[in-house]
Simulated assay, not measured.
Amino acid sequence: MLGVLINEKEMKELEYLIKREMDEILFDLKDDRIDHVVKRSMKERYKILFSLFKRVASPKECLKYMPAKKSMYKG
Rank of each mutant, 00 (worst) to 15 (best):
L49N: 03
P59Q: 05
Y46H: 07
K39F: 02
R45Q: 10
R33F: 13
K64Q: 14
K19A: 14
L29H: 00
L14P: 05
M22A: 03
N7H: 05
S41E: 15
K12L: 10
V38P: 06
E8Q: 12
M1G: 13
E13A: 11
D23G: 06
L26F: 03
L29Y: 00
A68V: 13
S51M: 07
L26S: 10
D32N: 14
E24L: 12
A68L: 11
E24F: 06
M22Y: 08
S71Y: 09
G75C: 10
L26V: 04
M72F: 10
D23T: 00
L17W: 15
R55Q: 14
E15T: 02
N7W: 04
P59A: 01
K43G: 02
M42A: 07
D31Q: 08
L63N: 04
R45K: 14
I48V: 12
L14N: 10
F53V: 00
F50P: 00
L52A: 10
E21S: 15
F27T: 09
E13M: 10
F53M: 03
G75E: 13
G3F: 14
K39P: 06
M42G: 06
L14R: 11
K64T: 09
S71H: 02
N7F: 00
M1V: 06
Y46L: 01
N7R: 03
K70G: 02
L29C: 11
Y46C: 05
D35K: 10
Y65F: 04
L63W: 01
S41I: 15
K19Q: 10
E24C: 04
E21D: 12
I6D: 06
N7E: 02
L14Q: 12
K74W: 05
K60A: 05
L29S: 09
I34R: 11
D28N: 13
C62S: 00
L52W: 13
M22E: 04
K70I: 14
P67Q: 09
N7L: 01
L49T: 01
K47L: 08
R40S: 11
E21Q: 10
L63T: 01
P67K: 03
M66Y: 12
R45S: 13
L26Y: 06
E8F: 08
K70D: 12
I6F: 00
F50D: 01
E24W: 00
F50H: 08
E13V: 11
Y73D: 08
V38N: 08
D31A: 13
L29T: 07
Y16M: 10
S58E: 01
A57R: 04
M42S: 09
A57K: 00
K12S: 00
P59I: 00
F27H: 09
M42H: 06
Y73V: 03
L17P: 01
K47R: 13
D35Q: 10
V37G: 09
R45D: 15
H36A: 10
L49G: 02
K74S: 14
E24S: 08
S58P: 06
K69L: 11
V56K: 01
D23I: 08
M66I: 05
L52D: 08
V4W: 08
P67C: 07
V56P: 01
L17A: 12
Y46N: 03
